[in-house]
């Protein structure tokens, strides 16, 4: 199941290589493509849109600073999410933003996501969302990161392993433990 070393054509990597030679438009194109998703990604860690936006900006500033030394050794998104995950985990470890929680606001919900119809169903959906988020907040950082990468960002175990700097089997274990913890906690309530 390990990924082969031969890289498939990666248009994002080509944009990044253009950005490396000073093409600002290419860099901004990458920002427009991925920064909104990174806001969603960071919000899974911090549960606060303002902080999530700050994190997404910080991640892209790091990409900008690293642009000249960029080499296509993996998919662009793997590289990007490596920076993103480390930035979020470092910020979590600093502890400044930990435990800042904010109830879900309709205005913050992506239009791409279908919201449950009906007030009662909507309320139940919100309560469930809160429960899930509370369980995720209580997970160890690496389990939480693996869970977010696989469950929300749709990364394969292999790619999540590259991003987290661990083996594929370590990701398998992290994802199992986090998902199983969530299952048990939800069953108890």
């Amino acid at each position: 199941m390990e990924e082969k070393k031969v890289l498939k054509p990666d248009p994002d990597a080509e944009l990044m290589l253009r950005a490396a030679t000073g093409d600002e438009a290419a860099f901004m194109e990458l920002f427009k493509r991925y920064a909104p998703a990174l806001v969603g990604f960071a919000d899974r860690f911090f549960r606060n849109r303002a902080i999530a936006e700050e994190m997404a900006q910080e991640i892209f500033i790091k990409v900008y600073r690293a642009r000249r030394s960029y080499e296509q050794r993996s998919r662009f998104t793997t590289w990007l999410y490596t920076i993103a995950t480390r930035t979020c985990l470092n910020e979590l470890r600093r502890g400044v933003h930990r435990n800042i929680t904010k109830p879900l606001d309709d205005g913050e919900v992506s239009a791409k996501v279908q919201v449950t119809e009906g007030a009662e169903e909507n309320l139940l959906g919100r309560q469930m969302a809160e429960k899930i988020k509370n369980v995720l907040d209580g997970l160890p950082d690496k389990q939480r990161a693996a869970f977010i990468l696989v469950r929300f960002e749709g990364k394969s175990y292999s790619e999540a392993g590259q991003i987290l700097g661990v083996t594929r089997s370590a990701v398998k274990s992290l994802v199992f433990r986090s998902t199983d913890t969530l299952r048990r906690q939800l069953q108890q309530e």
Partner: peptide, 8 residues
């Protein structure tokens, strides 16, 4: 089914 947060 959890929604993703979109930027402002």
């Amino acid at each position: 089914a959890l929604p993703a947060t979109a930027p402002s």
